[in-house]
Computed example of a mutant assay.
Amino acid sequence: MPPRPRARDLGLPFPGTPGPLNAITDIAGLAVGFCTLTDPARKMRTGVTAILPRPEREAMPVWAGQYTLNGNGEMTGTHWVNDAGYFLGPVMITNTHGVGAAHSGATRWMIEHYCDHFAGAHHAWAMPVVAETYDGVLNDINAMFVRPEHAVAALEARSTGPVAEGSVGGGNGMIAYDFKAGTGTSSRVAAIGGQSWTVGALVQANHGLRPWLSILGRPVGRLMPEGCLREQEAGSIIVVLATDAPLSGLALRQMAKRVALGIGRGGTPGGNNSGDIFLALSTAEPRPMPDAAPALITRQELNIHLIDPLYLAAVEAVEEAVVNAIVAGEEAVTVKPEGRICHAIDTGRLAEIFAREAG
């Protein structure tokens, strides 16, 4: 079966200039991998997504900031991100009951791959970032299918090339605005101070109710009301935002806040039952490990008074990534309640909405 078209392929006129892949992997060196677990006979539809910000085997942190719009969810390691402005290792995304397994697998992977960091006499510790959204409508989440080896498999499958979307990795069992959704990505290029910087977003979209859905200002949810599954929101969205711009931890927290504006463009108010949790990271200006750093650390960072183009890039990339997650979705059967159909969005009808208005 050929892959479903991305949102731009349908003629949706998203603003801004994307990178070559229109994906988070437009950030040089950043890699994304998936382990997808599907077995209808076992009511299994879940998985793990891995994002590795740096290609080096050597342990090297990335600057980061975090923001939570609504906290009904989990993203581990963020207490340290908020205090220190950086983290070391991969970012994993899975289902709600898979957080522990994914954390264990990512920790084992770090111990094996960052040998110089964990060897020797000093005390080293691993604190990967692991986030989740709930896939219990399409997956028997209490069976706890995700195991540590699946997190390792996602990391080992990583690639710096095009990123698969929809029902892959942790996005396999996810629903957004009552359409089958999952993983989505997009990127934007912005100019500041005579230089071009890239912002990329990856989302695990599992949020929203159909009547709320708005795409580029069109009330798509009201125009396509068939097949709704829920009367109250019971999902979440995780967003990882990455950039090659040299930003401080404070500026990255401000970037993470703008993710809320990007998902808000799609219509969600950030429901009470939704975990809307965002992480922003920068691969610029490599930060040495604290125990290997000199007493005085010198680094460059972008003047925050000039940062608005990056804020806009973040909002636009997140907005498009959510729509890419939805248009990539493929029909699935629910396990709770059993036997209903979670429909994929009709991409032909979606394209007609925009073609009709353009004409």
Rank of each mutant, 00 (worst) to 15 (best):
A151P: 03
V152F: 05
V152A: 08
A153N: 12
A154S: 03
A154L: 03
L155M: 02
L155A: 03
L155F: 04
R158L: 00
T160P: 02
V163D: 01
V163P: 04
V163T: 06
A164F: 10
E165D: 00
S167F: 09
V168N: 03
V168L: 03
V168K: 02
G171V: 08
G171Y: 09
I175G: 07
I175D: 10
I175N: 08
Y177W: 11
F179R: 01
F179T: 04
F179N: 02
F179P: 05
G184R: 04
T185Y: 08
S186N: 02
S186Q: 04
R188E: 12
V189I: 10
A190T: 13
A191D: 15
A191I: 15
G193V: 12
G193P: 14
G194Q: 13
T198S: 09
L202T: 00
A205L: 03
A205F: 01
H207Q: 08
L209M: 13
P211W: 15
P211C: 13
L213F: 03
L213A: 06
S214E: 14
S214Q: 14
I215R: 15
L216T: 13
L216R: 15
R218K: 14
R218T: 09
V220M: 07
V220L: 06
V220G: 07
R222T: 14
L223K: 06
L223E: 07
M224A: 09
M224S: 08
M224Y: 11
M224V: 13
P225Q: 08
P225T: 11
E226L: 07
G227C: 07
R230Y: 13
E231Q: 14
E231S: 13
A234I: 06
A234M: 08
A234V: 11
A234N: 13
I238F: 13
I238T: 14
V240N: 04
V240D: 10
L241I: 09
T243S: 05
T243Y: 00
T243W: 00
T243M: 02
D244S: 01
P246D: 01
L247I: 04
S248N: 04
G249L: 12
G249C: 12
G249H: 09
L250I: 12
A251H: 04
A251M: 06
L252N: 10
L252W: 13
Q254R: 13
M255Q: 15
K257S: 08
K257E: 12
K257V: 13
R258S: 11
V259P: 04
A260H: 00
A260S: 02
A260R: 00
L261R: 10
G262V: 05
G262M: 02
I263M: 11
I263C: 11
G264P: 13
G264H: 13
R265C: 04
G266A: 15
G266C: 15
G266F: 14
T268H: 15
P269R: 06
P269T: 05
N272S: 09
S274Q: 12
G275M: 06
D276L: 10
I277D: 15
I277A: 10
I277G: 11
I277T: 12
F278W: 09
F278M: 10
L279R: 00
L279P: 00
A280S: 06
A280D: 08
L281W: 03
S282K: 00
S282T: 00
S282D: 00
T283P: 00
A284Q: 01
E285V: 01
R287K: 03
P288I: 11
